[in-house]
Design a protein around this nucleic acid. Structure first.
Length: 485
RNA sequence: GUUCCUGUCGUCUAGAGGCCUAGGACAUCGCCCUUUCACGGCGAAGACACGGGUUCGACUCCCGUCGGGAAUGCCA
């Protein structure tokens, strides 16, 4: 059994898309499960769209997700490392050119001098399903080379078989799939600017990098035909292909920008834990067991079988992702929690104590109420010395007949309390004091108190919140509430 | 147009011919817990796209229709 070698081959044109992330994840899992190698190859042959910044962003996103690779580009320097490099296609141009020329000399490819205008002209009279026919297909290669040397712009086209042939493969997730060769015409393998075209360099790289399994998105299924042709032309053995289902938006169209957040980076910035995103994405097209949904990456890898991948497309349900993120936030320890929360409350301009014990208590109180780390902002705002506005329900509670007396008494008791924080037990005592002295109980007691303390009619248990607020702040709050009561 | 892939609750899915009175999860609704709101617990509602076969028996296999996606590019 040869070593399992899989790859993720993104083109660096923006942040890592969640669809790409899933492709990367499944390849990563497959390698892990089979003790193989996971390779990161960069498909930057589209000069117009590929950028260095994009590459860096994608590498960052992969690292954030915890998907590390054995060969590819270095996550810091972005330089190739590994024995089958280089791993950036823009650095492999000589290899593609050499391969293309090899096909020309074996009569399996040819120079084509058709201009865009020529092709446009041909298209006008073409029936649907017909392909471009190049008059240069049978041109004498020496003649053609002369023109090329003269500086004439030329692409190199793959010479497809005249007789219709059937190309078949066993897809790891779809089973037996076959294509008729006349589905494609003589396709371009090398552009006039010398850059190779996807289906050509992809096949060559997979062969040269000894890739054994190609797990990629379903949109590439039809590309397999051309790649199979390339493998055949060089007498290379094709890898095992597995085409995974597409990820769709809520309207069942391919997930795109208009569906909202589609890049991993956005989820990172919006307060999601990478473990949650990974877990959620893994469940799109894979299920490890009938009654478990929360999985550590290790568990997913152990249970990962390509045969278990579903062939049908999946809708990306953000609501469920949010739920899953809330599960992971509840599981997070204090350190992870604050690492996730701090950037958001900082951005919102909220200042909080440095105290370790305080932070430990706060995360305990708010964890069960959060879906994303961003939620911490509104949750913690009442804990800091910032102005806030009362909502309708809060104002209503302040308007009750007894509210003013209750808050008055509360403020009086707090101000006569010893300096420092009020404990849970002390708060209970204070509340009881207000109750007996004002003769108010139930809703009429605790609602005005709640509003006087956090400015909202709803929220965490007061006896958990009060110990997190300074006496000074409590008094200031009570003062504001009194102004509205 | 042609070719290829695909079709189980609103969504993600379990289901490899009898285990299915189709299971779980998210969302929804109800109840419980709770001096509020969450969390949590319990429960309800909710699906095999349709039509033909094959079979003693079909969600499962085959064919067709319909729906969705992809390819037919000097994008990947």
């Amino acid at each position: 059994m040869p070593e399992v070698r899989v790859r993720f081959a993104p083109s660096p044109t923006g942040y890592l898309h969640v669809g790409g992330a899933r492709t990367a994840l499944f390849n990563y899992l497959f390698a892990k499960k089979n003790k193989g190698k996971f390779i990161l190859r960069v498909e930057d042959t589209d000069l117009e769209r590929s950028t260095e910044e994009s590459l860096r962003m994608q590498v960052e996103d992969l690292k954030w997700l915890g998907l590390f690779w054995h060969e590819g580009v270095d996550s810091e320097t972005l330089e190739s490392f590994g024995e089958y490099g280089p791993y950036r296609q823009s650095e492999r141009l000589d290899i593609y050119k050499e391969h293309a020329l090899r096909l020309i000399s074996s009569g399996q490819a040819y120079y084509c001098f058709l201009t865009d205008d020529d092709i446009e002209e041909q298209r006008k009279t073409m029936e649907k399903g017909q392909h471009i026919t190049s008059p240069f297909r049978e041109m004498d290669p020496k003649e053609a080379l002369k023109r090329v040397d003269n500086g004439d712009a030329a692409v190199i086209r793959f010479k497809t078989s005249k007789q219709v042939k059937t190309y078949a493969m066993t897809d790891l997730v779809r089973g037996h799939v076959s294509f008729q060769s006349d589905l494609v015409g003589d396709f371009v393998i090398l552009r006039s600017n010398g850059m190779p075209v996807y289906n050509f360099c992809c096949a060559i790289d997979d062969a040269l990098m000894k890739i054994t399994h190609v797990l990629r998105a379903e949109e590439h299924l039809n590309n397999s035909l051309r790649q199979l042709m390339v493998y055949e032309a060089f007498d290379y053995t094709p890898p095992q292909f597995g085409h995974m289902s597409l990820i769709l938006g809520s309207d069942k169209q391919k997930l795109s920008k208009r569906h909202g957040a589609t890049s991993c980076h956005e989820y990172k910035v919006n307060g999601y834990l990478p473990e949650a995103l990974v877990n959620f994405i893994a469940l799109l097209g894979w299920s490890g067991s009938a009654d478990q949904e929360i999985f550590e990456v290790e568990e997913i890898a152990e249970n990962f079988h390509v045969e278990k991948l579903t062939p049908s497309a999946a809708v990306f349900d953000e609501t469920k992702l949010k739920w899953m993120n809330s599960v992971y936030i509840k599981k997070a320890d204090t350190e992870v929690f604050w690492k996730g929360v701090l950037p958001h409350i900082k951005e919102a301009g909220i200042v909080i104590p440095e105290d370790d014990h305080w932070r430990f208590m706060v995360q305990k109180v708010f964890k069960p109420r959060m879906e994303t780390f961003k939620d911490a902002v509104e949750l913690m705002r009442p804990l800091s010395d910032v102005e806030f506005i009362y909502d309708e329900k809060a104002l209503e509670a302040l308007g009750w007949d007894s509210s003013k007396t209750v808050i008055d008494k509360w403020a009086e008791l707090v101000s006569s309390h010893a300096d420092g924080y009020i404990s849970e037990e002390q708060f209970d005592e204070l509340q009881n004091e207000v109750k007996t002295q004002c003769g108010v109980k139930g809703k009429n007691l605790f609602m005005p108190l709640r509003v006087a303390i956090i400015g909202q009619a709803h929220g965490a248990d007061l006896k958990l919140i009060v110990p997190l607020m300074s006496k000074e702040l409590l008094l200031k709050r009570a003062g504001w509430a009194l102004g509205k009561a």
